[in-house]
C-alpha cells in the first residue's frame, strides 16, 4: 500500500513536470496550480481527489497541514519565499490510487501546465477569482485590486485602459475606483449572517478608502489599504466559510484566531481614520442637524 493518496499524487506530478522543477516553483504558484487542477478534475471528470483548499484574499490556496507533506521539500528561495521541489525518490507504488485516477490526474497535470506553467501569481489569481469566486463581492474587490495594480510607476496613476468593467463609464481614474468601491457596497452580502457582522466595519473601511482617494490620490496606498482589509476579511470569515477538506484541528485554530484578527484590523482602522479626520474641516452638515443629534446623544447616554 502506498502512503500517499490522490491529492498528494496530483501535487507531486505538478512539481515533477513543472518547467521550474529544479526547485524554483514558488509557494503561491504551486498552491494555485494544485487548486486549479483539483477543480479541473472535479469539473471535467467528476473525480474528487480532495485537495484541501480554502479561499484566501484573491484566490484559493492549499492547506498543507491537511495533506501528507513529505512528497516535496520547500527550502527558502532566493526571492525570500519558499521554493518547492518534489521528492525525486518516490515510486508510483508510493501512491495508493487506481490506474484510472492516475491517468486522469496525469492528463490534468498536462492541461494545467500547458496553460499556466509560464503564468505569474496575479494571472493565476485573476483566473481563480473569475471562475471560482464564491460571491460577487469577492469578485468586485478582486477586480479593484487587479485594477489598482496596473499603475504607472512614475505618476502612480491607475491606467484606465486596464479597466475590465467598461460599463462603469468612468471619465478618470478616481471615478473608476469610486465605481469599483460602489460595486463592493452593492455586492456586500449583508444578508449572509457571517458577513452581516462585518457590514459596519466594511462601510467604515469603504469611507476611509474614499478619504484616501479624495485627499491623497495615492493609488499605491489604496492598494495596500485594500490588502489590509481583505487580509482581515480572509482570516475573519473567508477561509472559515469557503474551504474543503481542511483538517478539523486546523479549522479550530482558524476559529480561535478569527475574532482576534478582526479586532486587530478594527483598531488599525480607527487609528487610520483618526489620522485622516484630525485636520479635516467640519462641513456644516452636522451643525445643521445639531438639535436632533444632541438629543440622540443625550438620550442614549441617559439609558
Amino acid at each position: 500500500m502506498g502512503r500517499y493518496g490522490a491529492a498528494e499524487y496530483l501535487g507531486h506530478q505538478l512539481l515533477l513536470h513543472h518547467q521550474n522543477q529544479r526547485g524554483l516553483v514558488p509557494k503561491t504558484v504551486f498552491h494555485k496550480l494544485w487548486s486549479i487542477s483539483d477543480h479541473h478534475l472535479s469539473d471535467n471528470y467528476g473525480l474528487d481527489v480532495s485537495v484541501p483548499r480554502y479561499w484566501y484574499m484573491y484566490g484559493e490556496m492549499v492547506e498543507e497541514q491537511s495533506v501528507t507533506q513529505d512528497f516535496y521539500s520547500a527550502p527558502s528561495a532566493p526571492w525570500g519565499g519558499q521554493a518547492y521541489k518534489p521528492d525525486w525518490e518516490l515510486e508510483p507504488s508510493d501512491f495508493d490510487i487506481s490506474e484510472e485516477e492516475r491517468n486522469l490526474i496525469d492528463s490534468t497535470v498536462k492541461w494545467t501546465l500547458n496553460r499556466f506553467e509560464r503564468r505569474d501569481t496575479p494571472y493565476l489569481e485573476s483566473y481563480q477569482y473569475q471562475l471560482y469566486a464564491p460571491n460577487g463581492f469577492i469578485r468586485a474587490y478582486s477586480e479593484l485590486r487587479e485594477h489598482l495594480q496596473h499603475r504607472d510607476l512614475d505618476t502612480q496613476e491607475v491606467l484606465t485602459q486596464y479597466a475590465v468593467r467598461p460599463e462603469f463609464d468612468a471619465e478618470n481614474n478616481r471615478e473608476l475606483v469610486e465605481a469599483y468601491l460602489d460595486e463592493m457596497v452593492i455586492t456586500f452580502p449583508e444578508t449572509d449572517d457571517d458577513f452581516a457582522e462585518l457590514h459596519e466595519l466594511f462601510l467604515r473601511w469603504d469611507d476611509t478608502a474614499r478619504l484616501i482617494l479624495n485627499e491623497r490620490q495615492d493609488y499605491g496606498e489604496l492598494e495596500e489599504f485594500l490588502d489590509e482589509f481583505i487580509d482581515a476579511l480572509s482570516r475573519g470569515i473567508l477561509k472559515l466559510k469557503y474551504n474543503t477538506g481542511v483538517a478539523e484541528e486546523v479549522l479550530e485554530q482558524w476559529r480561535e484566531e478569527a475574532d482576534e484578527e478582526i479586532a486587530k484590523f478594527e483598531a488599525q482602522l480607527e487609528t487610520r481614520r483618526t489620522e485622516l479626520l484630525r485636520d479635516r474641516e467640519m462641513s456644516g452638515e452636522l451643525e445643521g442637524v445639531s438639535e436632533a443629534y444632541d438629543e440622540t446623544v443625550i438620550s442614549n447616554l441617559e439609558e
Binding site: 484630525r278 479635516r280 467640519m282 462641513s283 442637524v289
Partner: peptide
C-alpha cells in the same frame, strides 16, 4: 457627498474636541 460629510463630521467633531 452631503451624507458622507455628515458621518465624517460626527467622527471629526469628537476627534478634534478630544484633542
Amino acid at each position: 457627498s452631503k451624507l458622507e460629510a455628515l458621518e465624517r463630521d460626527i467622527e471629526t467633531l469628537a476627534i478634534q474636541r478630544k484633542s
